[in-house]
Computed example of a mutant assay.
Amino acid sequence: MPSESASSVFVVRGLAKTYVMGEVSVPALQDVDLDLYSGELVVLLGPSGSGKSTLLNILGGLDRASAGEVVCDGWNLTRAGDRELTAFRREVVGFVFQFYNLIPSLTARENVAIVTEIAADPMAPHEALDLVGLGGRLDHFPAQLSGGEQQRVAIARAIAKRPRVLLCDEPTGALDSSTGVIVLQVLERINRELGTTTAVITHNAGIAAMADRVVQMSDGRIQSIRENGSRLAPSELSW
């Protein structure tokens, strides 16, 4: 739960996104107001088509809003040009997706080094891999790793540049529940030890209990925001 003194990392006001396909307009987000606070872990919960991924993509500078305002740590994303959005993604945000997007011909260490070589103040690749419990797998290729291990390499790659914010889109969606718990333990550790503001998208209501706050979405709108009185450890979750 954010303390009274916690600062807002993201301030979102009146956010809307409409996709235009020929003569058809499809509203994906409507009138979204949201704050994300420093160091908190937020779960964005809702069914497919509720607008979760669209919201995350706009927060991460991967997509542009149709209306409203998004400010992150002094960066006004709704007014930013392409070059500024590229700098924002490089300097401020780490991404974790459902599918790992690792380069098959590179080792775990080399996959992480792709990010550290362009970051301003990166961790060493082995340090990031140690944080996700893969210090002994540095020189393994993706094909030599399980799905859960590949996802942990993807998390190490995302955090190696020391992002202010970690945005995770269905990070356990391709994993069984026991492997998913291991990945969630890694995300919880990163949030707790590094203080990285973390937002996790899921359609899985069982994951919500590990969050400081739960943002429930439906039909492109925020239906509710609730605070958890205490966070459960990932090992205590059931789904």
Rank of each mutant, 00 (worst) to 15 (best):
S178M: 14
S238W: 10
G81F: 04
R192N: 10
S230G: 03
T78P: 03
K161N: 00
F141I: 13
V96P: 00
R83I: 08
P27G: 07
A154R: 02
P122G: 01
D212P: 02
V112A: 10
I118Q: 11
A80C: 09
A124K: 10
E117F: 11
L62N: 06
E188P: 00
I103F: 14
R192V: 11
A119V: 12
D31A: 13
L34G: 05
L175F: 05
T198D: 04
G39L: 00
V12L: 01
A108D: 12
L44E: 01
L55E: 05
A120S: 14
E110V: 09
G133D: 14
P234I: 02
V183T: 02
T202A: 09
S177W: 07
L187Q: 01
C72T: 10
S7Q: 15
S66K: 05
R79C: 10
C168G: 03
A28L: 05
G46R: 12
L138T: 00
R13I: 05
D121I: 02
G229Y: 10
R79Y: 01
G60I: 03
R89S: 13
E4Y: 11
R13Y: 00
S66C: 08
D63Y: 05
G74T: 02
G173N: 11
I190C: 02
Q98Y: 07
G147P: 14
K17A: 13
I190M: 06
K52D: 12
L184S: 00
L145R: 00
F97C: 00
F88E: 08
Q151S: 09
G173W: 13
L55P: 02
L129W: 02
F97M: 01
L56Q: 09
L45N: 06
W239T: 04
D121A: 05
R90F: 07
A87N: 14
T86A: 15
L134A: 14
E227D: 12
V43M: 04
V20Y: 00
A199D: 06
G60E: 05
L62P: 03
S38V: 10
A120T: 14
W239S: 03
N101G: 11
S224V: 10
N228A: 01
R192K: 15
A233E: 04
P27K: 08
Q144A: 12
T197N: 06
G49N: 02
